[in-house]
């Protein structure tokens, strides 16, 4: 990868902790990257027939030496995206399109969920797994639907493994939980390498290539919304979502964290998140908090809303209401 060029417009969005890379470290990375490029060019003729560009080991080295997403130049971002597409073709035999969609101006995403309407069908979970290219084993799902008996609000007594023949069951209420997109996210503060940060549009994202898999964020999150890929996610090739985003649903490797990103590969293009599209009862409401005429603003202004574990000071961007 070449260095320099136009600065990535993400630069400056990262809530900056001390830069883990010194100027000397940057020069060393640039040198190593140059060597990798030479090695890649030398092995280009021996590269696999079905993929164009550098060979697999050159791509792997490139990924290892890649900069943090926020500090990448525009050309480096493009090279990383093409590398991801090559790796997907090489490893999973799928033709992906990987983008790095920018946050929209004057947009602050938020979601609300009507607990009176949710019937616990878990269609949102199914759609989320598909849209975000999560592993299909059921071990990693970004949405967890809790079943609560009666009027209790004790989340410790909730059952996420409910599996009756039909839902809703009499006397049960259902509470779907995913990333709450907090304004003061403890997961971001806990990350020792700044691999996760909050975007200007309110979405907390992860640079999967920068994540070291320490799982500190998972421990810090009070909502259990961060999940660890204990192994390479298994996805049938014919069930891949081919439109992907660098910070969103691109293929992950084993040993990195992942979480709900409000389907940023969709929402930053104006579409609704997959969970909203799949919900058979319309329990979820999504929109721009900065737009006074949006549905989410109507809900916040006219309904009795609450947020989970507000007393922790996380200030979630996800509201619940009934009625």
């Amino acid at each position: 990868m070449e260095s320099g060029g136009a600065a990535n417009s993400y630069a400056g969005h990262l809530p900056m902790s001390p830069d883990p890379l010194s100027p000397h470290g940057h020069r060393r990375r640039t040198l190593l990257r140059g060597l990798a490029a030479v090695a890649g060019a030398a092995s280009a003729t021996a590269a696999a027939v079905e993929t164009e560009g550098p060979s697999s080991w050159a791509d792997a080295l490139d990924r290892l030496l890649q900069q943090h997403f926020v500090r990448m130049s525009a050309s480096e971002v493009q090279q990383a995206l093409r590398r991801i597409e090559r790796e997907a073709l090489r490893q999973h035999r799928i033709h992906l399109q990987c983008d790095a969609t920018q946050p929209l101006d004057q947009v602050r995403f938020a979601q609300a969920l009507n607990l009176a309407v949710c019937k616990g069908s878990r269609r949102c979970v199914e759609a989320c797994v598909r849209e975000n290219n999560c592993g299909r084993g059921g071990a990693l799902e970004n949405i967890r639907v809790l079943s609560l008996m009666g009027m209790t609000t004790e989340l410790e007594q909730a059952n996420p493994y409910f599996n009756p023949p039909l839902v809703p069951e009499p006397g049960q209420r259902y509470l779907p939980i995913s990333c709450q997109q907090c304004d003061h996210p403890p997961c971001v503060q806990a990350c020792p390498v700044t691999a996760t940060w909050k975007e200007p549009d309110g979405i907390v994202v992860i640079d999967y290539d920068w994540c070291i898999g320490c799982r500190y964020c998972s421990v810090a999150c009070p909502y259990g919304a961060r999940h660890f890929n204990w192994s390479q996610p298994h996805i049938p090739a014919d069930d891949y979502q081919p439109i992907t985003d660098y910070l969103g649903n691109r293929p992950r490797i084993g040993g990195v964290m992942e979480k709900c990103t409000f389907c940023l590969q969709r929402t930053r293009k104006g579409l609704l998140p997959a969970c909203l599209e799949a919900c058979p009862t319309g329990a979820r409401i999504f929109g721009n908090l900065l737009d006074p005429s949006s549905e989410i603003r109507y809900v916040l202004e006219h309904k009795s809303v609450f947020r989970l574990k507000e007393e922790l000071g996380t200030s979630p961007g996800f509201w619940y209401f009934t009625g």
Binding site: K119, G120, S121, R122, R123, V125, E126, A127, R130, R136, G137, G138, A139, E141, R144, P160, Y161, F162, N163, P164, P165, L166, V167, P168, P236, D239, A278, P280, T281
Partner: peptide
């Protein structure tokens, strides 16, 4: 609204399950 068949529950820690979606892709 009528009752529906729920999608499969998550797999308990340390286990996995078959991918058997209710809704076709």
């Amino acid at each position: 609204t009528k009752p529906v068949v729920p999608s499969a529950p998550p797999a308990p820690p340390g286990t996995s399950r078959e991918w058997n979606p209710v809704v076709p892709p």
